[in-house]
Every structure is written in C-alpha cells, then in structure tokens.
C-alpha cells in the first residue's frame, strides 16, 4: 500500500470513530466544543504516531508473551511525556481535557493500531498509519465538537453567532450520544460503508 493511501484511509474508509467505532470515551466526553475535540484528536495523534513508530522498531525484540504489557508501557510513557508538554505549553487545554489525557493510555485506537498494524510493518509505514488514523480521529472529533457547539452554545470554534443559549442538552451527556448517532448515520449514508 502506498504511503499516501496509508494516510488517507483513516479519513474515510477506516475512520476510527464513524466506521471502526473505537475510542468512544474521549469521543463522547471531550467534544463539548470544536476546539476541545480538535485538541483531544491532536493529543491522541501525537501518542499514536510515536508509539506506532517505537513499537514497530522494537517489535522483533519483544517476546510474544509480554507483547501487550510492553506496548502498554511504551504507550504510557508517551502519554506521560504528552502530559508534561501540554502542562508546560498549553496549560489551558490540559486543564479542559483533564482526565482524558492520561486516559489515552487505554484508548483502544492506540493499542489496536499497535497490535493490528505497527508490530508487523516498517517504521515509516507505521508512522504514516499513525498519522492517517490520527487525522481521521481528529477530523471526526472536530466535526462532532462543531455540531455540538453550534447546537448547544450557538458558536463555532469559540465565535458566538447566536445570542443567548443554545440547546444546552447538546453540550451535556444526552447530546453527545445523539449527535454521534446521527453523524454515524449520515456518514454511512454518504460513504455507503456499513
């Protein structure tokens, strides 16, 4: 598979949110606004690309039996590094996303890609795969965040265009489930992917 194809497949064909339905917790919890969704997506992508590369490079040396714990340690190390970097340079975003930054460790997308792709492909291919899936995740979270922000607070990326309150339920838990349900339906209709 070409590098370009590796990167673009995560956007539509293997979109982690709308097609593979992975990583539902951050998807539902952090998309109260478009910016938050994008921040979460980029944070996940950072961990995904780096852990994919390291796992791909070290896979031949890791015994099969301790494979999963080793991957978890590698992923957890990168998540902690991400925590430091965000705390130092984007403290406001770190505070908003809160608990869901350390929880990237248990995001099924990251471990899933390590197991399904990185441990049997080259470092470069694994990086491309990480970028592709990461971009797909970021895109879906941004769209979901945007929809919820427009309906829920009458603004987009923080710019308010409707005075007063939106439909507050969309910022709260029920709106998260509902918005995601309809986005998946629309995505299925457009792409004809079951």
């Amino acid at each position: 598979m070409g590098k370009f194809k590796l990167i673009t497949k995560g956007l539509v064909k293997e979109n982690p949110t709308f097609v593979l339905l992975l990583g539902m917790c951050p998807t539902l919890a952090t998309t109260t606004s478009a910016m938050n969704g994008m921040g979460m997506g980029l944070a996940t992508m950072f961990v995904l690309v780096l852990s994919n590369m390291v796992i791909s490079a070290t896979a031949p040396y890791i015994p099969d039996k301790v494979r999963i714990p080793s991957y978890i340690v590698i992923i957890a190390a990168f998540v902690t590094i991400l925590q430091f970097i965000m705390q130092a340079y984007t403290p406001a975003m770190y505070e908003t996303l809160g608990l869901f930054i350390p929880l990237i460790v248990v995001n099924c997308i990251v471990l899933g890609r390590a197991e399904a792709f990185a441990n049997k492909n080259s470092v470069i291919d694994s990086a491309c795969d990480g970028i592709g899936i990461g971009l797909g995740f970021t895109m879906s979270l941004t769209i979901l965040g945007l929809v919820r922000e427009i309906l829920g607070s009458g603004s987009a990326f923080g710019f308010k265009f409707i005075e007063g309150d939106g439909i507050i339920a969309f910022v709260l838990a029920p709106g998260a489930f509902l918005a995601l349900a309809y986005l998946i339906v629309i995505f299925r209709k457009i792409t004809k992917i079951e």
Partner: peptide, 21 residues
C-alpha cells in the same frame, strides 16, 4: 437500515442519559 447496530444503541443511550439527568 443506517441506524442498525451502534447508531440506534447511541440514540437509546442518549434517552437513558436524559433520564439520568
């Protein structure tokens, strides 16, 4: 058809979440 599987489950979860609100 497009709602089969996860989407209808999400709609159900939404209503359940609303009840818990």
């Amino acid at each position: 058809k497009p709602f089969r599987g996860i989407p209808i489950a999400l709609v159900t979860a939404s209503i359940l979440a609303m009840a818990f609100m």
